[in-house]
Computed example of a mutant assay.
Amino acid sequence: MNERKVLIVDDEFAIRDMLRMALEIAEFRCLEAENIHEAFTRVVDDRPDIVLLDWMLPGGSGLELLRRLKRNDTTKDIPVIMLTAKTAEDNVIQGLDVGADDYITKPFAPRELIARIKALLRRVAGGDDEDRIQVAELVLDGESRRIFLADEPVDMGPTEFNLLQFFMSHPERAYTRNQLLDQVWGANVYVEERTVDVHIRRLRKALQTDLRDYSDLIQTVRGTGYRFSSRGVAAR
Results as ranks from 00 to 15, higher is better:
residue 230 S to Q: 09
residue 95 G to D: 08
residue 89 E to D: 09
residue 180 L to T: 08
residue 217 L to R: 05
residue 108 F to G: 04
residue 154 V to I: 08
residue 22 A to R: 03
residue 87 T to C: 07
residue 27 E to G: 10
residue 5 K to V: 08
residue 14 A to F: 14
residue 117 I to S: 02
residue 158 P to S: 08
residue 96 L to S: 11
residue 100 A to E: 11
residue 107 P to G: 02
residue 145 R to M: 04
residue 3 E to F: 12
residue 15 I to A: 05
residue 188 N to E: 07
residue 206 A to M: 00
residue 112 E to P: 04
residue 3 E to W: 10
residue 126 G to L: 10
residue 186 G to T: 07
residue 66 L to K: 11
residue 210 D to L: 11
residue 77 D to W: 15
residue 148 F to D: 10
residue 177 R to Q: 08
residue 185 W to K: 09
residue 49 D to K: 04
residue 228 F to L: 04
residue 16 R to L: 09
residue 134 Q to M: 08
residue 157 G to V: 07
residue 55 W to R: 11
residue 54 D to V: 01
residue 156 M to W: 09
residue 155 D to G: 10
residue 25 I to N: 07
residue 188 N to R: 06
residue 36 I to C: 13
residue 64 E to I: 09
residue 57 L to R: 00
residue 61 S to Q: 00
residue 216 D to S: 10
residue 220 T to N: 11
residue 120 L to S: 02
residue 151 D to L: 14
residue 111 R to G: 05
residue 172 E to T: 08
residue 101 D to R: 05
residue 114 I to Q: 02
residue 180 L to A: 02
residue 154 V to Y: 05
residue 83 L to C: 01
residue 216 D to F: 14
residue 39 A to D: 04
residue 125 A to Q: 09
residue 135 V to L: 01
residue 29 R to L: 14
residue 234 A to K: 15
residue 101 D to V: 03
residue 120 L to C: 05
residue 169 S to Q: 06
residue 206 A to W: 02
residue 56 M to R: 07
residue 16 R to Y: 03
residue 228 F to C: 01
residue 80 V to D: 10
residue 159 T to D: 13
residue 54 D to Q: 02
residue 80 V to L: 12
residue 51 V to E: 04
residue 2 N to S: 15
residue 34 E to G: 00
residue 142 G to T: 06
residue 157 G to Y: 10
residue 139 V to L: 14
residue 196 V to D: 06
residue 151 D to F: 12
residue 100 A to L: 12
residue 165 Q to D: 06
residue 26 A to Y: 03
residue 202 R to F: 08
residue 20 R to C: 10
residue 235 A to V: 13
residue 228 F to S: 02
residue 87 T to F: 07
residue 167 F to T: 00
residue 188 N to G: 10
residue 29 R to F: 14
residue 87 T to W: 06
residue 39 A to G: 00
residue 109 A to W: 00
residue 75 T to M: 15
residue 73 D to H: 15
residue 107 P to S: 06
residue 58 P to W: 02
residue 134 Q to R: 14
